[in-house]
């Protein structure tokens, strides 16, 4: 992976996400995971990425985050390479390796989202207010002082979304945000993401077929390549058909 030198870009130009003829293969595999992937995502879009297991969804996300470098092609976020754009990207992982019983409160977890902004990690003025504002918006203000390890799955998910939002990202990437949470909370998370997409670009990787029937600006189907689904294909039956087709 290229050395990460995150920078604050003042003159962001171009589409939020741009992939041009990108190909990637893991060193331990013969077949490429992604090949000839080209697409653009404009600002303030709400995009869902779906696809079968092993189709390359998580790899696509990692390429956007700069955790992996493409073997071919170019990837740009706001006109610059992903590893330099990290200050403008918020990320909500599917699995967070949180050590059980770690002594950290919800508010502290949210504040770790802006720890890189100061030399010694001490929060800039305004970070605390931002954290409180975001927690209010996501309806988790009442959990501020609670230990993170004691939260339910849905509560944790919202805290991790708050952590991703505190740095004021222009692009929010989420990996399976509705996995392992009950349907009522899934709906709340979907509504939250729809609200957020009015002020930033939101890209969600999801297996949840209910997710794609919501308000989305586009659905990408990923199975070694990336295809934007047409409106008529964005139904549970049509997507199920795509999942069962062999690549």
């Amino acid at each position: 992976m290229a050395a990460k030198r995150c920078c604050h870009v003042h003159d962001l130009a171009g589409p939020k996400v741009s992939f041009k003829e990108v190909a990637f293969r893991y060193p331990t595999r013969i077949e490429p995971v992604l090949s000839d992937v080209s697409f653009c995502v404009e600002e303030r879009s709400h995009i869902c990425v779906i696809g079968p297991n092993g189709g390359g969804k998580t790899t696509l996300l990692k390429l956007m985050l700069g955790l992996l470098s493409p073997d071919q092609g170019t990837i740009e976020l706001f006109g610059i390479p992903p590893h330099r754009a990290c200050r403008h990207v918020g990320y909500v992982p599917q699995h967070s390796v949180i050590r059980p019983g770690f002594p950290i409160t919800v508010r502290e977890v949210v504040l770790t989202g802006c720890v890189e902004q100061h030399r010694f990690g001490w929060h800039k003025k305004g970070c605390g207010e931002s954290a409180d504002q975001i927690m209010e918006e996501l309806e988790i203000a009442g959990l501020a002082g609670r230990p993170f390890s004691r939260l339910s799955g849905g509560e944790r998910q919202r805290v991790l979304i708050a952590r991703a939002l505190i740095s004021g990202p222009l692009l929010l990437l989420l990996d399976e945000p509705t996995a392992n949470i009950d349907p009522k909370v899934q709906q709340q998370v979907r509504e939250t993401l729809n609200r957020l997409s009015s002020r930033m670009t939101v890209i969600t990787v999801s297996h949840d077929l209910d997710y794609i029937s919501g308000e989305l600006d586009g659905v990408f189907f990923v199975n070694r390549s990336v295809r934007l689904l047409q409106p008529g294909e964005v139904t549970s039956d049509a997507v199920w058909e795509l999942f069962t087709q062999r690549k």
Binding site: K4, R5, C6, L65, L67, C86, R87, Y91, P93, S96, V97, I98, R99, F102, I104, E108, V109, L111, T112, G113, V115, E116, H118, F120, G121, W122, H123, R163, S167
Partner: peptide, 22 residues
């Protein structure tokens, strides 16, 4: 003490801290 916030972030979620440029 000086590096408390950074060490807290790294001990809590190292991968996320790395993604944030820490």
């Amino acid at each position: 003490v000086l590096y408390y916030r950074k060490l807290l972030a790294v001990c809590f979620d190292e991968e996320y801290a790395r993604l944030r440029g820490v």
